[in-house]
């Protein structure tokens, strides 16, 4: 799918002085809010949308700084603000109850949403949570070396990745168990989405993410521990996913209803194993 076809599926709304681009499949009672990982966009889910929208109403926003949404280059748009933006987006669509799927840093935004709800600033009901690869990896890492390593890996990885399209392709493919699982065209679209509106400059704030995660992890872990929503883990278990220890840690820390570990799958289960991914979400 090329970038203009992809854009045609999006809607735009202005929230907190920022342009938010999102996919809303409109039909269905059960709403699923999908929070993509950092550096990526709603495009991650293009392979599974058509199938999943038969069962759920999908809300897949591009976070501020990514995809088609606006990309502030001169200030840091924090996790807290991303969370507030998502809550407002749901509010604007009159959505009162939602299931949330989050990947990577998206899980931190999910936790912030839960913490906003806990503090009584929102009446949103969260009915279910799916945690994808790299969720809470930093927050739950057992010691500072591990924590630092993950952040370093992410920061350095990103800086390397965005240096050129060839490098981008190489780095993204490294996150796949089977490097051919992502097509050349999909890579090109992802890259264009990253470049759009001076997007690379947003990555100047990459260090701030780490600081904010370390700063807030206490609050976030508290929030997710206190939620009543059933939690499921979906994790690609090939070592290309970067982290295969965290599912166990999440299980140790939270009450998890189901853990789906996908063999021979890297960081992007929705890309690499779309049919398994769909089955898990549909509860088959």
């Amino acid at each position: 799918m090329n970038i203009s076809d992809w854009q045609a599926k999006h809607q735009t709304i202005k929230l907190f002085n920022q342009r938010v681009s999102f996919i809303d499949s409109v039909v269905g009672d059960k709403v699923v809010l999908v929070i993509h990982g950092f550096g990526m966009s709603s495009f991650d889910y293009h392979k599974v949308i058509d199938e999943l929208k038969l069962s759920y109403r999908l809300m897949i926003p591009d976070l501020i700084g990514f995809g088609f949404s606006s990309k502030p280059t001169n200030f840091y748009f924090s996790f807290i603000e991303q969370a507030q933006m998502l809550l407002r987006l749901l509010e604007e669509h009159n959505i009162k109850e939602v299931a949330i799927m989050a990947q990577g840093f998206g899980a931190s935004i999910l936790c912030e949403i839960l913490s906003i709800i806990n503090a009584g600033f929102s009446d949103l009901k969260v009915s279910k949570i799916w945690l994808l690869n790299l969720s809470l990896s930093v927050e739950l890492s057992p010691n500072m070396e591990a924590q630092g390593q993950i952040l370093k890996y992410i920061n350095a990885g990103f800086m390397k990745m965005v240096s050129s399209f060839e490098m981008f392709k190489k780095c993204i493919r490294l996150n796949f168990c089977d490097a051919n699982a992502i097509s050349e065209e999909a890579l090109k679209t992802s890259w264009e989405l990253l470049l759009l509106n001076d997007g690379l400059k947003t990555l100047n704030f990459i260090n701030y993410w780490g600081v904010e995660i370390l700063q807030s992890s206490n609050r976030w872990l508290d929030a997710i521990k206190n939620t009543n929503a059933p939690i499921e883990i979906i994790w690609g278990m090939d070592k290309s996913s970067g982290d295969i220890d965290t599912p166990e840690r999440i299980n140790h820390f939270l009450t998890v209803e189901k853990t789906h570990l996908i063999a021979d799958c890297g960081y992007f289960p929705m890309f690499e194993k779309p049919s398994i991914f769909i089955d898990i979400l549909k509860g088959v």
């Binding site: 010691n143 872990l221 140790h252």
Partner: peptide
């Protein structure tokens, strides 16, 4: 910062 640190060092 909290004893979670120890709990997690399973």
């Amino acid at each position: 910062k909290n004893n979670l640190f120890y709990e997690l060092s399973v």
